[in-house]
């Protein structure tokens, strides 16, 4: 081998270890899961002993009422938390985008929930939601209102509140960063043009933040579809199937019902949904870049 071709190999040699780890840690399990989803697979069997059943697992899931319910709960949960978090996060960012003494401390406090391990969040909220000893009910009692059976009667609402508490800061910090990178002078121009504070938000700030907000929303949506720990600790998916999101359903199918093939097929449905969202996100950013690229030469030619 000549020195030249060796030199050309150098970059590949450097990425080889990383590529190997990727193949072992990512592609192998996914391929294993996809392969398993076409088989009737009990956890006591090794994969090679199992029977190939084609798309039977997928087809069975399409008619499975429990899976439908779980899918519905996941959709309701994901879209509700993301909507609420977007409104709260962006709203907070708009409120806190100013220079007041102590603002940096306040901002740090706001993002604390995000840094707490989800399991801990689940335990903390479980205590606070507790029907008799919980913070919320004690508070309601102290001001003379009736107790609410949070986790028993309003389980989905409860997990939505907990998730909103934990993840609003994520949207808050990204929105704040977007706000602070807006062109200052355009906002000043709007003030001179006669825009009130609301009109500045509505006509200038929000439209200019929109690219960041869309990507933030998609990221959060992808995350919300995969939620597990907080709900597992808070409700365990119950009562009944009321908070059994897909991740929980998959875990139960695999461990309680011992249907590994079906669980794998369910995972693949979720994976497809997330791929779709991710592709949507990439398509959006690509479209943005392409538009910026297209506009630039047009302007330079006329100079």
């Amino acid at each position: 081998m000549t020195r030249h071709s060796l030199n050309r190999m150098t970059p590949y040699m450097f990425i080889a270890p990383a590529a190997l780890v990727m193949i072992l840690a990512l592609f192998y399990p996914i391929a294993y899961m996809v392969w398993g989803s076409f088989r009737d697979w009990d956890p006591s069997q090794s994969l090679s002993e199992t029977e190939f059943v084609g798309l039977a697992n997928y087809i069975k899931l399409l008619g499975d009422a429990a899976f439908h319910e779980s899918f519905r709960v996941t959709l309701v949960f994901a879209f509700t938390v993301v909507s609420v978090e977007m409104v709260l996060g962006v709203g907070l960012a708009l409120l806190l985008d100013r220079n007041i003494r102590g603002m940096s401390v306040l901002r740090t406090l706001f993002i604390l929930p995000m840094m707490i391990a989800p399991v801990v969040v689940g335990l903390v909220w479980r205590y606070m939601f507790h029907a008799t000893y919980g913070t919320f009910n004690r508070f309601l009692e102290s001001i003379g209102l009736p107790r609410v059976d949070w986790l028993g009667q309003n389980p989905l609402l409860s997990v939505i509140i907990a998730d909103t508490w934990q993840w609003t800061p994520f949207i808050f910090i990204l929105s704040l960063a977007a706000l602070q990178s807006l062109p200052r002078s355009a906002l000043e121009a709007a003030r001179i043009d006669g825009a009130t504070a609301w009109q500045q938000i509505w006509f200038i700030k929000l439209p200019l933040m929109m690219p960041v907000l869309i990507v933030t929303m998609l990221l959060r949506l992808i995350d919300a579809f995969k939620v597990l720990e907080v709900i597992l600790v808070l409700t365990g998916g119950g009562p009944g199937l009321s908070t059994e999101i897909l991740a929980l359903r998959i875990a139960r199918t695999a461990r309680e019902f011992r249907e590994l093939g079906e669980a794998a097929a369910m995972s693949n449905y979720l994976l497809m949904l997330l791929m779709l969202l991710t592709l949507g996100m990439f398509a959006f950013t690509r479209w943005q870049d392409a538009r910026a690229q297209r506009l630039r030469p047009a302007a330079e030619e006329e100079e």
Partner: peptide
Amino acid sequence: LEPKDRDLAMVFQDYALYPH
């Protein structure tokens, strides 16, 4: 007074156009 109540128009150094 707020800028909007001063009846003035302004041209900025970086033009400050609304990009959207």
